[in-house]
Write a protein that binds this DNA or RNA. Structure first.
Lengths: 202, 202
DNA sequence: CCACGTTCTTGACGTCGTGTCAAATATGGG
DNA sequence: CCCATATTTGACACGACGTCAAGAACGTGG
């Protein structure tokens, strides 16, 4: 058994950074190999393919991201928790310069293509799983809020609505990149869901 | 002046069909050239690059799509118009087998990349323009509804919210492909915007 | 302590896609 | 009728993906 000469974790970090900035199709294994100080062939040996490498790097990111969301969704009033949730979401895909967008949404639209050819399906499932898990987190927060009388609607439907809005924000971010507007939409959504939109005006 | 030997419009149709099914990066000019019965070099001569060809084909689609939306948004009560709007939206990206998704969202996430390198910027503007124009249409419908007492909120904010939801639906469609659920979210959004969500239960 | 198998590494290869170029070709205006 | 102009065509250079066989490094068992 010959031991690995490179740091598996470091490769994942370097790879995900590139994928996030340039997209999966826009990133070449040569780029990653160069930046990570690894031979291209070694990447194929260790991960199998570019998509598999992306998937592993993405799972790593998804775990961290989910933990951060969970934390944001567990402090203070329902309104505060939802605000923190949207804040973290928007801050995440406005990070970097230029902003790198939402990796989940970008990856999903790039790999969750219609003409499924093998590994794309695994990728689609990974994305779908993260989206589902986030939805569940939001739903829990709403359910807790319902018990405390902070929210009077259907938690499942509202959670689904909220996750839909976050995905929409990820798309609009690409189109306009106008962060204040994204935050306005988020605030409006919170108001709508909590039933105060028409009271607050704007 | 030697005349073109191919039908410019037909090439755009063939190209957009491929782009829609397989994405821009997933479609090769050889594919398009073969299907359209044109030499690859002629495409470069006529359009300049793959992205430019996509852009021209997309503009063509966008015009048609905008007209259809406009029509859907001009018949009956506000609720009926919004229902028709969402229906057209969802039907559009559930079309084809397998469903091809929303070309605007797919194209935007694919080409509206962060590391802008020239033509990507034009593409981003084209997508942003369509999104803006759709938002304006929805806003007009809401304003008209406000005058008739069908809607009591802020048309601009509500229109932005609605377009955000449609973009989110385009993303969720890729993740789950569960059309009934998409339609539920759409119905819920209409209820929310019209201020009936908590009355209707669900 | 050393040989051997197992795993990793390395570089070469085949294939495909993009974009460029020059030569060949077809047209219509002067 | 001829020539400027635009299009077509095939060849080319380049980069990326993925495969493969040969070489290198390790540790395990004799």
């Amino acid at each position: 058994m010959r031991p690995r000469e490179f740091d598996h974790d470091n490769v994942l970090r370097v790879a995900f950074d590139q994928f996030w900035r340039k997209g999966v199709r826009g990133t070449s294994l040569s780029d990653i190999a160069r930046d990570a100080g690894v031979q291209r062939g070694s990447l194929y040996n260790a991960f199998g393919s570019k998509e598999a490498l992306f998937l592993e790097a993405y799972e790593r990111y998804a775990g961290d991201y989910l933990l951060a969301l969970q934390k944001a969704l567990s402090a203070g009033s329902l309104r505060k928790r939802l605000t923190a949730f949207f804040d973290l979401t928007i801050t995440n895909f406005r990070s970097g310069s230029p902003p790198r967008g939402c990796p989940t949404t970008r990856g999903l639209m790039e790999l969750g293509a219609a003409e499924g050819e093998g590994l794309d399906e695994d990728a689609r499932k990974a994305f779908a799983s993260l989206v589902s898990r986030i939805t569940a987190l939001v739903q829990d927060a709403l359910s807790a809020g319902a018990e405390r009388g902070e929210f009077g609607g259907n938690p499942a439907a509202a959670a689904l609505h909220i996750i839909t809005v976050t995905r929409g924000l990820a798309v609009l971010e690409r189109a306009f990149g106008d962060e204040p507007q994204l935050r306005k939409i988020a605030a409006h959504t919170i108001d709508l869901v909590l039933g105060r939109a028409r009271v607050n005006g704007q």
